[in-house]
């Protein structure tokens, strides 16, 4: 594991610890021996060229790969404070997804009302009391900076929203269930620059509440929103560290080449 210099004033606590993670799509060895911490209430960015495995890595955290046959994990992603290896065969992926939420690349609201989109995760958890649902939906929409725009039309279809609003709705949906970690898979790649800015601002605000891991192909974005950055290449973790250090004085030549645009 790469040492991290303690620049931050508050003590950093690990929320998750990746140890010797290997991942296989059938025969293809997509992730190779990754070791990395994820710090609590911080934003960790995963960067690297297309096909480097950053999305594959992110989708390991909530066991999305279990939805498709032939995928195989080795190693551990330990979640703290209870020290559970979420990749262990005995751990139900549904339990993992109840603790770790995800926001996808393309906004994927359900063809239901705005309200039902946000409430869905709670309904899955068996919540049916109207008062609790109303409260949680409002709270999540406020956290996702969407409440003011939609409070008058909660029963309208989610598809009536703009792309950026849809993505914030997806963030609200993921937040409504109080996740321990929120995963973002290139959340702004389908959005225009203004919507992108609002999502980035939101991510910045959210880190007070939740631990965030974000995949991005946009290095400026990683520099803007993250506290820690991991640079990946061909399924390997090349370098992990405090974002400022990774971008200003990376330790590895490969990282420097990628960040300065000589490669990738």
């Amino acid at each position: 594991m790469v040492a991290v210099s303690a620049q931050e004033a508050a003590p950093v606590v690990a929320k998750a610890e990746v140890r010797g993670l290997n991942f296989y799509y059938s025969d293809f060895h997509a992730l190779k021996a990754i070791d990395m911490p994820v710090y609590e209430k911080k934003v960790t960015a995963l960067i690297g060229p297309s096909g480097c495995g950053k999305s594959t890595f992110l989708r390991s955290f909530n066991r999305m790969h279990d939805l498709y046959p032939g995928n195989r994990y080795e190693g551990e992603i330990r979640l703290f404070p209870d020290d559970v290896n979420v990749l262990a065969p005995g751990v139900d992926p549904i339990e993992v997804r109840m603790r770790i939420s995800m926001v996808f690349q393309k906004p994927n609201p359900f063809p239901k009302s705005i309200y039902e989109n946000v409430a869905y995760g709670l309904r899955v958890r068996g919540e049916s009391r109207r008062v609790t649902l109303n409260e949680k939906v409002e709270e999540a929409l406020r956290s996702a900076a969407l409440w003011e725009e939609v409070k008058e039309r909660l029963q309208e279809p989610a598809f009536n929203l703009s792309g950026g609003q849809q993505q914030r709705l997806c963030i609200a949906r993921a937040l409504a269930t109080d996740p321990e970690i929120l995963l973002f898979d290139e959340p702004t790649s389908a959005l225009d620059p203004i919507a992108t800015a609002s999502i980035e601002e939101l991510i910045h605000d959210l880190k007070n509440k939740v631990t965030i891991v974000i995949v991005t192909h946009n290095m400026q974005q990683a520099a803007r929103v993250s506290d820690y950055t991991a640079y990946m290449y061909l399924g390997e973790l090349i370098e992990f560290g405090v974002t400022d250090e990774i971008f200003i004085k990376p330790k590895k030549k490969e990282t420097e080449d990628y960040i300065t645009g000589r490669f990738g």
């Binding site: 909530n62 999305m64 939805l67 549904i94 339990e95 997804r97 109840m98 939420s101 995800m102 996808f104 994927n108 609201p109 359900f110 869905y120 995760g121 899955v124 958890r125 997806c170 949906r173 993921a174 269930t177």
Partner: peptide, 8 residues
Amino acid sequence: EGAYALGS
């Protein structure tokens, strides 16, 4: 995937 990711 969106639905599964919420723990369905």
